[in-house]
Design a protein around this nucleic acid. Structure first.
Length: 340
RNA sequence: GGUGGGGUUCCCGAGCGGCCAAAGGGAACAGACUGUAAAUCUGUCGGCGAAGCCUUCGGAGGUUCGAAUCCUCCCCCCACCA
């Protein structure tokens, strides 16, 4: 899922998202609640009408902002009290119920439970408390969701538990017991070593039902995706392809390249020869490097198109390999080419 | 012709006797980025392997223990007045 926090995947239009193969994108409850506010979006029938995107949208609950904007927030049983990072002044309270109501107002196809994501490293006590709170909030989220008869929006639960395997087991058991149409592994890619992230994902994913989608939140690099798919992950979201594109880092089968580097000054080749994205079909590395250095706005669009195409094409190929029963070989080939 | 201001490391620009290889921007070069407060952030940026040494602040002399900073002459630039 390309990340479109503020009702836009930065730098690209919905038409370009379609062209690049996006099937679903992610929006953010916290940001859209603050601006423009749910009521505005509701008048358009939800995010789809507001942002002109007809395909599915998953909304994050705001749980991650509790974590990343922690200095502006205070957490309690009731919910998450925070100061707006926009105007600082007004205080807001995001409860599990409010998180669901806002997401219903946004009319997202997949809503996420409000959870508490904790920083790395966290001690066992903190991880245990966050896990417990996440479970209690999950029940409240589900109650709010079920109070709406035939609610068209799905709701996914989120597993926490820090980097403690037994806590992950407990969290998974509790969240599965509450019961959701899909499950997410939260609390990863928060600063832990890559090996640990993979280990925790590999430990947690098998704890979740195989007949429901399994979503690893906030991950990851191309290699992370391939490896976690091998562990059973079905869905991901990550800012990496879009943010890194804007910062000049482009993905190829052989690894990344930084388009601002002097070595590309005169290169007539596209970012990745053979790539079928709009950018690679029409523009050279030298031109993109020039746009980047000249700080021309077009470069963000062109690099974002390429990176999203790369990511989405990668998972498309993985999907085909799985259907053909050749994924293990695909994965080996991928790793033999791709340098981290 | 007169008066005043000024020439600083690739560019702009601070410094105005020692704490200055010289603030701060920019450019350049490299790196980072994993549920987006990100078109952001970090590092390097005279030479020599480091402690340290060497060359540098328009040019040439001079004063001083010590000068980008003070003095003399010269060369440029800008403003105003004739």
């Amino acid at each position: 899922m390309p990340v479109g926090t503020q009702a836009t995947v930065k730098a690209v239009s919905p038409e370009e998202l379609l062209a690049v193969g996006a099937r679903i994108i992610l929006g953010n409850t916290y940001h859209l609640y603050l601006r423009p506010g749910v009521e505005i979006v509701r008048r358009f029938g939800g995010l789809h009408g507001f942002m002109h995107w007809d395909r599915p949208i998953l909304t994050d609950s705001g749980g991650f902002q509790v974590f990343s904007l922690a200095e502006l927030s205070r957490i309690s049983e009731e919910g998450y009290a925070f100061q707006s990072h926009l105007d600082g002044g007004a205080r807001h309270l995001l409860t599990p119920e409010a998180a669901i109501e806002v997401q219903m107002g946004l009319n997202s196809d997949i809503m996420m439970c409000l959870d508490q994501c904790i920083a790395y490293p966290a001690d066992r006590q903190a991880a245990s408390e966050a896990l417990a709170l996440t479970t209690r909030w999950a029940r409240r989220c589900k109650d709010t969701w079920q109070a709406v008869p035939e609610c068209p929006n799905l709701l996914f639960g989120i597993v926490q538990g820090g980097m403690f395997k037994d806590l992950r087991i407990r969290s998974a058991e509790e969240i599965v017991e509450v019961g959701f149409p899909g499950y997410a592994v939260g609390g990863l890619s928060v600063g832990e070593p890559k090996e640990l992230m993979l280990e925790m994902a590999g430990h947690t994913l098998p704890l979740l039902p195989t007949d429901a989608p399994r979503y690893v939140m906030g991950v990851g690099t191309p290699a992370d995706l391939v490896d976690m798919i091998a562990m059973g992950a079905d869905m991901f979201d990550c800012v990496m392809p879009t943010r890194n594109a804007r910062n000049g880092q482009l993905f190829t089968r052989k690894g990344t390249l930084n388009i601002s580097n002097a070595r590309y000054r005169e290169e007539t080749d596209p970012i990745e020869p053979g790539c079928e994205c709009y950018t690679c079909r029409n523009y050279s590395r030298a031109y993109l490097r020039h746009l980047y250095h000249a700080k021309e706005i077009l470069v963000h669009r062109l690099t974002t198109i390429h990176n999203l195409h790369f990511y989405l094409n990668l998972v498309k190929q993985v999907r085909m390999a799985i259907l053909e029963g050749t994924f293990a070989q695909f994965r080996r080939d991928f790793h033999s080419q791709y340098e981290q």
